[in-house]
């Protein structure tokens, strides 16, 4: 039936998104292509039928004039064709909707990843994304960075990092344990510290948030 494949895509993406909250699922290139093929097929068929009725009604746009066609055509054959065109057009619209839903759900998740994992995505996620999605991610990154730099510029304030201060602070400084080798980290005061596995450090909470999200460190005390 028309639109079945595209509905599959939508159901898939929903399942994948609830199954994995912090990554992008693989892009279903095959699925998308099949839907686009089906759309082309529907469209070609419509063109054919339309040309057949077309001799009676000289219009270009299929959809807008269908009602006219349905009412004005006297022969039952033409009426049947018009109904077919109408049905196929609805299927086309539905396929378009489903594809857009599929792609924009992925896009939403890709934007979320900027907030979960920071501006550089792990390879696992990158491999699941298309070329254009990667490009979108990079651009989103820039747009977001520009925005955060813009906050309060009029009031002589130079930007606000919205990815910091994710949680209400309970204490200013926290002790944290390093979970994996990370290397050098530069806190705001400029004194570089080296994060080695199992080391314990003491830093202001808000400066640790990115590291926590990346799974590099773990808070010991509040």
């Amino acid at each position: 039936m028309f639109g079945e494949r595209s509905f599959e895509l939508v159901k898939d993406v929903e399942r994948q998104m609830t199954g994995c909250v912090t990554g992008v699922p693989t892009y279903d290139e095959n699925g998308v292509r099949q839907v686009l093929d089906e759309m082309q097929l529907l469209f070609d068929q419509n063109q054919k039928d339309y040309n057949r009725i077309g001799q009676k009604v000289n219009q270009n746009d299929v959809t807008e004039n269908l009602d006219v066609t349905m009412n004005s055509s006297t022969s039952t054959g033409a009426q049947g064709e018009a109904a077919g065109v109408y049905l196929r057009h609805t299927a086309l619209e539905r396929n378009k909707d489903c594809l857009l839903a599929y792609m924009s759900t992925r896009l939403e998740r890709i934007r979320d990843l900027r907030w979960i994992k920071g501006s550089v995505l792990p390879e696992a996620d990158q491999n699941n994304m298309t070329e254009q999605e990667l490009q979108y991610f990079t651009d989103y990154n820039k747009i977001l960075a520009n925005y955060m730099r813009d906050i309060g510029v009029d009031g002589d304030f130079d930007g606000l990092d919205l990815t910091e201060h994710m949680e209400p602070p309970k204490s200013h400084m926290v002790y944290f344990k390093v979970l994996k080798e990370y290397g050098e980290f530069e806190p705001e005061d400029g004194k570089i510290i080296v994060l080695r596995k199992n080391c314990v450090h003491h830093l202001p909470k808000y400066q640790c948030e990115t590291l926590i999200r990346q799974g590099v460190i773990e808070i010991l005390t509040e």
């Binding site: 469209f43 746009d61 299929v62 959809t63 378009k96 594809l99 792609m103 254009q132 979108y136 989103y140």
Partner: peptide, 21 residues
């Protein structure tokens, strides 16, 4: 954001659809 997102959809999907759509 709106410009970039719209461009994305135009480039990846909408331009690949049949002309009416």
């Amino acid at each position: 954001l709106v410009t970039r997102t719209a461009d994305y959809f135009k480039a990846t999907l909408i331009s690949k659809m049949p002309p009416v759509l």
